[in-house]
Amino acid sequence: MRRTTTILSMLLACATAQAATTGVALVHGTGSQTDAYNDYWQAAMVEGVRNGLTDRSNLLVVNCDFNQYMWDSRAAGCLAGQLTSFIQNRQIDRLIVITHSNGGNVMRWILSNPTWDARYPAIISRIAKVDALAPSSAGTPLADAVIAGNVFESALGWLLGYKTDAVRQQQVGWMAVYNQQYLLGTSGRPALPVPFRAVVGTDVVSGFWSSQAYCGGYSQSVGLELTQNWLNSCSDGFIECSSASAAGTVWFRDTQQTGGSVLNHNQSRRACFGLESILANDVRG
């Protein structure tokens, strides 16, 4: 009788696991997006990630105004609204969130402040993990430079957003305060309620002779090589490795899974060096 009960329990657990509906949400970084599919991620990246889903319809590309402070209704509020609708409409039981850059901060605000918005707890309960691509978890000196009035190439307008609230928020000192008082997951703070796994870009390749420099756009690689002058040697041209590693855990540093290729900040939102396949395999797992 005991053996029969055990077998039935195992079968029930398997059936429950098989019935779980997995969904993926792609959360962009700094900027106000209305067509993040084409303008931020591009089709090769989105469709590559979609390959990891059993039901290819269970993928959401978020479009919000992340030029705002992370807690703003146009940022975290917009994200919460789109995630809630996606979870309800697609009956998602297991949500994998893939963020890029400042999108990791907006997502971390939701995870860290469940009482801020009545929608947050239901979202958190569905999230299996957050794969944070080049998150600016400890800010970036580039934000400080922008607010101080330094000018960068127009090719990096997508990256910096210039003097927006989101850029102010990502100043190093400001993020230190947020991490100490309002956000979870950094050193000395309570852990986040779900795994927050960072992918860390370690360098920028911009030489015209290198094929690595052309993935995602050559001009962006050149621009990020320029901005790297404001950063530590270990950086992706926008985020220093220490910042990308500051919250949650490090999933991998670029070269560990890309066959030795580095991922600059632009390439970490693109189908470069097999990144889209790495993410798709993680979704399957």
Rank of each mutant, 00 (worst) to 15 (best):
A44G: 09
A44E: 08
A44L: 15
M45P: 01
M45D: 04
V46R: 09
G48S: 05
G48F: 04
V49H: 08
V49G: 01
V49L: 04
G52L: 10
G52M: 09
L53N: 00
T54A: 13
T54D: 14
D55H: 12
D55I: 02
D55E: 15
R56N: 12
R56W: 10
S57Q: 14
L59H: 01
L59E: 07
L59P: 04
L60M: 13
N63K: 03
C64M: 05
C64F: 08
C64V: 09
C64Y: 01
D65L: 03
D65T: 07
F66G: 03
F66K: 03
F66D: 14
N67S: 13
Q68L: 14
Q68A: 15
Y69L: 12
W71K: 08
D72K: 01
D72F: 02
D72V: 07
S73L: 11
S73N: 11
G77L: 02
G77I: 00
C78Q: 06
C78G: 04
A80R: 00
G81L: 00
G81A: 02
G81P: 00
G81H: 01
L83W: 03
L83K: 00
L83T: 09
T84A: 02
T84S: 12
T84W: 00
S85D: 15
F86G: 03
F86C: 06
F86I: 11
I87T: 10
I87A: 10
Q88S: 15
Q88L: 13
N89Y: 14
N89K: 14
Q91E: 13
Q91T: 15
I92Q: 13
L95S: 10
I96D: 12
V97P: 10
I98C: 04
T99F: 10
H100F: 09
N102Y: 15
G103R: 08
G103Y: 06
G104S: 11
N105S: 12
V106P: 03
M107G: 00
M107I: 09
R108F: 08
W109V: 06
W109Q: 03
L111F: 05
L111E: 02
S112V: 01
N113E: 08
P114M: 00
P114E: 06
P114I: 00
T115C: 09
T115Y: 14
W116D: 12
W116L: 13
D117W: 00
A118K: 06
A118G: 08
A118L: 11
R119S: 11
R119Q: 07
P121W: 13
A122C: 07
I123R: 08
R126L: 08
R126T: 15
R126K: 14
A128S: 13
A128H: 12
A128W: 10
A128G: 12
K129D: 12
K129V: 13
D131G: 05
A134M: 13
A134W: 08
A134S: 14
P135W: 11
P135L: 05
S136K: 08
S136Q: 11
S137I: 09
S137A: 13
G139M: 05
